[in-house]
Amino acid sequence: MTASDPSGIRLQNVGLTLGAQQFRFDCELPAGAITAITGPSGSGKSTLLNLIAGFEMPESGRVMIGKRNVAALHPSERPVSLVFQDNNLFAHLDLFTNIGLGIHPALKLSADDRKRISQALTRVGLGGYEKRTPGTLSGGERQRAAFARALVRQRPVLLLDEPFAALDPGLRQTMAALLLDLHRETGNTIAIVTHDAGEVRQLADHALFIDHGEVTLQAEIEVFLMRRDVPGLTEFLDL
């Protein structure tokens, strides 16, 4: 859980066909850094994330997390936590249960585990919300709860699929700041799919640009923001 953990992500010649679309990914997401995954709609950003998370199995190539090829592993066996745009929480279960399931999948929790859940909730600004159900929370609060679960799971990799897309612009800033704080505390490797150039500037150390199922640019953020020769990237950054 420190920056020295071997939690860098590498996709080597990963090939996948979904329907009529072909994907070929070759890229690296450095350990302990925040990498933004950007690109036009339908270019394959979420597919890349699904390959890392284990919801898609590559037809060829290797998906390395640290020194391990995880390409054949079930999603639960990968050292990964997830936050989607919505539905990160089971709507009928309270926050305590939702987060507790991240510690033990049959909810067998020790006294220490229970304390950790409450601490995580407090850390994301939801102290005392254990018994609340997701339906009674605002969109931002629900995403905070999802972060709390990622905290207790203590996985070295955190994958975020447009986690703030459903929130108001002002709230996005606050949530991005919270994410940065948590990242500095845990030193985890983060991959975040985003449509928002502002988010890329605020959060990312590295960035990938994906177009038509391929990574057309991967670079450190300063370089990424300066490049003007990659088709589609300028439009994305100017938006």
Binding site: H74, S76, N87, N88, L101, P105
Partner: peptide, 15 residues
């Protein structure tokens, strides 16, 4: 998303 979530949390069939 619930099924993706269940898989990523490693919930067994009973859970």
């Amino acid at each position: 998303d619930y099924w993706r979530l269940s898989a990523s949390l490693g919930l067994p069939a009973r859970s």
